[in-house]
Amino acid sequence: MAAAAMDLIDRIAQTNRWSRRHPAEKLMLGGGLLLLSLILPAIPAGPLVLLAAASAVLVGARVSVRDYLAILAAPLAFLALGAVVLAVSVQPDAGAPWLAASTDSIATAAAVTLRALAAVASLLLIVMTVPLTALLRQAHRLRVPAPIIEIAVMMYRFIMLAFGMAARGQQAQANRLGYRDIRRAIRSSGLLAATLLPRLLDRGRRMEIGLSTRACTGELRTLAPAVALSPAFLSGAVALHASIAAVTVAWVTLVPSPA
């Protein structure tokens, strides 16, 4: 499950319409929205940020609604559960305990959920539009020490290799009916996990030869073509942030608080 979601996020990040844009542009857009969702009042900033982040992903980066919802489903389920817990309280009274929800608790639950949802959507905007490779390259520009980035690059490569091996292995087992019932499925996944580690270690050894044939000196330095930073995109992002903040301030001033 988690592997499938990670694989899907990686595919989306690598292929969306914004994937070749400068990562700083998307970090700025998503980071700004995240900040707004945290500091502004959840109503009306929450829905506004959510709308902005979702439109950026769906309209701007052209991610399909289906993929977006598939990724959003897990945090959404988690948030829904949290909202119920916040809205409903258990009140042990004389006799049996009973459940209660007040207008106050429902308002709190709604505010917290909206804020969290807006924050998740902002974060997903970054995660789904910036390929990990571009993120690591940006980290290198920000002077994160090279060994840390090199380890991250290798981990990324090996995780993706492991996903591929696991998917092919599972397919091969399923072809021989290894998943026909729960007992066999558990056994098959165990066997698969056990073969994956030695195979990855073996792969690692062979990759060492592969690197050394290219005169590797112990460092994994690479170059990427330069990507231009778009002033139009950046000013658009700032304008969006400013208008969300302005609408929120106007709303808070003009609309009387229900309390």
Partner: peptide
């Protein structure tokens, strides 16, 4: 797959 390690083809 024994040889490719970097993030993108260009980097590799």
């Amino acid at each position: 797959d024994d040889q490719l390690f970097a993030g993108t083809v260009y980097e590799d």
